[in-house]
């Protein structure tokens, strides 16, 4: 492997890892509050279809339309995440089943596809696309130029989001409350923190971020809408949260690893390396299982484990 290939791999890894990273950051917030949302794939698709719809039908300056499109995608995904929040927080339904129902409801043969049909989005190219930004004119700087100074705006926004979440969770009073709600809701409740309100808020923000991640597919990667365009990225986002031990920096790193590894397969076979691309594609999943097994047992559990109340509905009477 030469240097050019490595640089290209990292740059594409960051590019393709970004939508998964943004969605996973949202899921991280929901899970930190104790709500597992397996509906990420469905929420991303809602974000993707609505963002594309807006970018096709709203006219105006490119930048403004793209901002509106991303926000509309976020709002649509947040709206469907509200169903999950209502089911699991208010009605105390099983989070696994409700999340799966959300993916079926909104997913590739569900509402996102229905919206695409109704608005006649299939087969039409979009009119606005988010191009790479030549940041500070540094894109031609060796090595770092193509990797970090020549990416679309959402890549930079994802770094801001990751840092903001890190700051929020670890350094603010609300973040402390959030962790309490996810680890020990009874104690949080006794402290006067509204478990219900915190969980609703974080599931909704999680949904909005999944929508932003989804919009990356129809505004940046492709300028078309096809049913199920995210092709499983939402499920990978779920894996990322675990792989990252529920920490934002880990989510970003993990997402880029997924991105690089999936780009690696195609690049190597193009260069005549005789290893099936499926082996590379499977690597992150197998790695996640291995990491999960290691951190769940014994030494890692307290430090790196899942929020203690993840998946458990909260009711004062013990549910």
């Amino acid at each position: 492997m030469n240097r050019g290939l490595v640089i290209q791999l990292i740059a594409t890894g960051i590019f393709y890892g970004t939508p998964m990273a943004i969605a996973a950051l949202g899921e991280l917030l929901a899970e930190r509050s104790g709500v597992l949302n397996l509906g990420v794939e469905g929420m991303m698709l809602m974000g993707a279809v609505v963002a594309f719809w807006v970018s096709r039908d709203v006219s105006g300056p490119n930048g403004l339309v793209l901002i509106i499109a991303v926000l509309a995608g976020a709002a649509a995904a947040a709206a469907v995440s509200l169903i999950h929040a209502f089911m699991t927080i208010t009605l105390r339904a099983n989070q696994v089943v409700s999340g799966l129902a959300l993916t079926i409801f909104a997913g590739a043969t569900g509402l996102s596809s229905y919206v695409g049909d109704l608005a006649n989005l299939g087969g039409n190219p979009g009119r606005h696309i988010m191009n790479a930004i030549n940041v500070f004119g540094l894109k031609d700087v060796p090595i770092l130029g193509p990797i970090i100074f020549n990416q679309p705006a959402l890549v930079y926004i994802s770094w801001v989001i990751a840092f903001a979440i890190y700051w929020y969770v670890n350094k603010t009073r609300q973040g402390l409350h959030l962790r309490a709600v996810g680890e020990n809701p009874e104690a949080a409740d006794a402290m006067g923190v509204s478990v219900t309100r915190y969980r609703y808020a974080h599931v909704l923000i999680g949904g909005a971020l999944a929508g932003v991640g989804g919009s990356f597919y129809t505004l940046v990667i492709s300028s078309e809408w096809t049913d199920g365009i995210t092709s499983g990225a939402g499920w990978i986002a779920l894996a990322l949260v675990i792989l990252a031990f529920w920490r934002p920096a880990g989510v970003i790193a993990g997402a880029y690893l997924f991105g690089v590894v999936s780009a690696l397969g195609a690049n190597l076979s193009a260069r005549g390396v005789q290893l099936p691309p499926e082996v590379f594609s499977a690597l992150p999943y197998v790695l996640t299982i291995a990491v999960l097994a290691i951190v769940s047992s014994g030494w890692g559990r307290g430090r790196f484990g899942a929020p203690a109340a993840l998946g458990v509905p909260y009711a004062r009477d013990g549910g």
Binding site: L36, V96, G232, W235, L238, A239, I242, P276, P277, E278, V279, S281, A282, Y285, V286, T288, I289, L292, A293, S296, S297, R301, A306, G311
Partner: peptide, 28 residues
């Protein structure tokens, strides 16, 4: 025996099995 969350591990194995399926037909 290792207390690893079965929701997440069984989900990851779905993708692995899907890739095995692809490999058996498409790339071998």
């Amino acid at each position: 025996y290792l207390n690893a969350n079965e929701i997440l591990t069984s989900l990851m194995l779905n993708y692995t099995a899907g890739l095995l399926l692809d490999w058996l037909i498409n790339d071998s």
